[in-house]
Design a protein around this nucleic acid. Structure first.
Lengths: 184, 184, 184, 184
DNA sequence: TATGAATGAGCGTTCATTCAT
DNA sequence: GATGAATGAACGCTCATTCAT
């Protein structure tokens, strides 16, 4: 069993949220996945909500580190950066099952637990901003922003359809289609 | 208090599922929304799952009646049918808050409650098929199918972003963009 | 479906009590077995307890008619009457599964529903009395009563063991053994 | 308030099952008898069925320790062992009201909860086997087994009649009668 | 840090019973 | 006589959270 530290708890919870969603994941599930008892979790996080916030932070940070970073790689043209970012996006969402945890949390909880909204909005805002920076190399500012928004939405939609159909290929079509569309 | 019949129960539940999701909506919530006691609901539906199935059936039927029907309107060209269908789609998803109930149910429950999968898949399959019939007037069969799939995904993504941002305009951009893209 | 009259309701309930016991048998079970809806049962019996009382009365009456009657058959010696009664007992309890409904009700409900006690006690009192009348032909009064009591207890015990083991033969051994013991 | 541990829960439940039967005893009853809340019981047993299994195990173990053990006491003849076992049996079943919990559970639940069957059958199998070991000192093997079975059935029947009549003396008559019958 | 018993509210569901139609 | 919607209490069980050890 892996050493039990805050990071482990977050990672295990992330997997559970992906598979089961927020409401269906109990603190007992999390504890069991960490090799702990329920009560012990409260040494790491004061509540389920706080744990979810930490999960969102971790997801956001990792996404920024592995995907958004592509938007600003120095020495690369816009097209190359878009290609890299799309490839990274694809790899990121194909890695685990259950799609985009923050997207899922958004639909499940954004109205019921308003405290989650800032983290959810920040995630999508920064994702859109990164894409906008790439698009801005080719399109005027307002068009770039709108195209970035549509790209994010389309990827989210593709992830949803991938989850429903069980066919991972659909995401690939979308990411490649976006590259072709913007730099075809 | 509105008359309590099966349709009323379904309609009230639909609203609740939209706002709160499946797991967060309790039978007591549903009963209260119908002016009933918890136990009385079981005269209408033998279980929460069965109620959810009825909700999905109702949503599917209404969507077919008001949106999918546009794909086959006689005496109209493909472009006009696409325009009408997109306008109907927009109106449909702008009418209630909470976006696409079946899409939400998909993310929340498709893995946890496998019995929901057939209804969810049927909904998206028929939606895609309707769009494919329109696209087939202009594109070869394989392209038409792929374009229809991307369109459905993009609309779902737009609905999700609309929910997150609270800005209904995003859906309009998407539906109009799709018309322009395919028949621009 | 058999005509629905009071006798049918009693007969159906009897079967259910035998298989499921009193507490596990719901009014809905009874109604379904009679081809009625739950509410309709209350036209026949004002409560579940009253229904159970009617079931016990019916069982008692049938037992008297087919088994106890043997104790007093005119023109037959005590041994022949005992033989006949034991054969009738055997046939009676082998006919349905679930053993002796009144015995079961006794263990399940005599302390919880004191209203059942008189009917239960009457059933066993009359059974014992019938056997005592036979025994009195051969044994002095006090011995006859005690032997009758032991016989009833042994048959009840055999029925219980038959239910547990699923082996109907055990009852036969007991009834035959009792004949041999008293008139061997 | 007595200390709350697994043994206490089992003991309290045993009393309740004896008085009220399995189906009429609710988890709230058990909890109240233990000075706990309903939910707290689930720290000790994952379900009502599991609790009942533990109760049966405890009953079986205690019965073996105090009654069945007599069958194998070294340095005693068969008659003495039978006498002791019957005396212990009598004391055992006279100690609490409600008779033989496992016998009661058998009639109430053996058909509805098949998981209970093994424990119920094991209890009666070992009881019969112990008596058979004693009988085998005087009777040939097949007769010994049959006599043991009849003795167990007769005791069970006597316990049932004792419960119905409220007269504890009936059991004494039976146990003494059995000693006289086999070693008279 | 970790435990695990305890809490108290709440969950989906069942039940015997009532009653207007 | 039959219906079936409604009741209201209770059921077995789950949950996030607390806290003494």
């Amino acid at each position: 069993m892996q050493k039990t530290d805050v990071g482990t708890v977050i990672a295990r919870t992330l997997e559970l949220f992906r598979r089961q969603g927020y409401h269906k994941t109990t603190m007992a599930d999390v504890a069991a996945a960490c090799g702990l008892l329920k009560g012990s979790l409260y040494h790491y996080f004061p509540s389920k909500e706080a744990l979810a916030q930490a999960v969102m932070d971790e997801v956001h940070a990792r996404f920024a580190r592995t995907v958004l970073v592509c938007a600003d790689e120095p020495g690369l043209g816009a097209e190359a950066r878009l290609e890299r970012m799309m490839a990274a996006t694809e790899a990121y969402f194909l890695a685990g099952t259950g799609g985009c945890v923050i997207g899922n949390l958004a639909l499940e909880a954004i109205d019921m637990i308003p405290d989650f909204a800032p983290a959810i909005r920040a995630y999508f805002r920064e994702w859109t901003a990164a894409l906008t920076r790439i698009m801005a190399c080719r399109y005027p500012a307002d068009q770039a922003g709108r195209k970035a928004e549509r790209a994010v939405a389309e990827i989210q939609g593709a992830i949803m359809m991938m989850r429903i159909s069980g066919d991972g290929g659909k995401l690939r079509q979308t990411t490649r289609g976006l590259v072709a569309e913007f730099y075809g």
